[in-house]
């Protein structure tokens, strides 16, 4: 993203690190991202609201208890939660790297990002397996309300994870090595982290309301 920086009228071109002077002290990209996440809350809020208002209203099966395997989903949930840890470690490594003013490739940052992306990819893999399995159990997008709402909600979440994986890979394999990110490098990694944690938090809500709630007696 290009940003318009404020300065005096005679900004010299040697201002190397392109320090943004912002009114709130938060970088423009990060602030814009917070606003986007607020917006995305309403997106997922509506999808989750739709799921919950149609919960238990399917006229025909299969019903959630018929298909859910909470063990399998717990494993993928655990992986996704752990990926937030590796993301935090990537953000921390980026801050250390930036403070060291080192010109070398930030391999630790890239490594933690790859670990995060790998776990995200495995999560998506689990979801593909789960969708496939449920489909063969007879749960289809068209068959009943549960199918329609379940696949739509978790599908959009899975898409968010997949976009996050793609983002992590592009950032760690192109932007960082090619030095497309200059200036506040740690801040950019932090923004990626914001998105990742958000997607994670949304999954905690989905996992609780969609899966765990079915096992409350």
């Amino acid at each position: 993203m290009d940003s318009v920086a404020h300065g005096s009228g005679h900004v010299d071109h040697h201002e190397e690190h392109h320090e943004e002077r912002t009114s709130l002290g938060v970088s423009n990209l990060k602030l814009a991202f917070w606003v986007f996440l607020a917006s995305d809350c309403f997106f997922f809020g509506s999808l989750i609201g739709t799921y919950m208002s149609y919960r238990g209203k399917s006229l025909v099966g299969p019903y959630p208890q018929d298909v859910f395997s909470v063990e399998v989903t717990s494993i993928s949930t655990f992986l996704l939660l752990m990926s937030s840890l590796t993301m935090v470690l990537a953000v921390r490594a980026a801050k250390i790297h930036q403070q060291s003013k080192s010109e070398s490739l930030p391999l630790t940052v890239m490594g933690w990002m790859w670990a995060t992306a790998a776990m995200g990819a495995i999560f998506v893999g689990f979801q593909v397996y789960e969708f496939n399995h449920f489909y063969h159990e007879g749960l289809t997008l068209q068959g009943n309300l549960f199918g329609s709402t379940f696949y739509t909600l978790t599908g959009f979440h899975g898409t968010h994870v997949a976009i996050g994986v793609l983002w992590l890979l592009i950032e760690s394999c192109i932007w960082i090595p090619m030095k497309w990110i200059r200036g506040d490098f740690a801040d950019r990694v932090d923004v990626t982290g914001l998105y990742w944690h958000f997607v994670d938090i949304v999954w905690i809500v989905i996992f609780t309301l969609v899966y765990l709630l079915e096992f409350v007696r």
């Binding site: 318009v4 404020h6 912002t22 009114s23 709130l24 423009n28 814009a32 606003v35």
Partner: peptide, 9 residues
């Protein structure tokens, strides 16, 4: 929104 919050003189 970012402009209003961050780019004020």
């Amino acid at each position: 929104i970012t402009t209003v919050l961050n780019l004020r003189a």
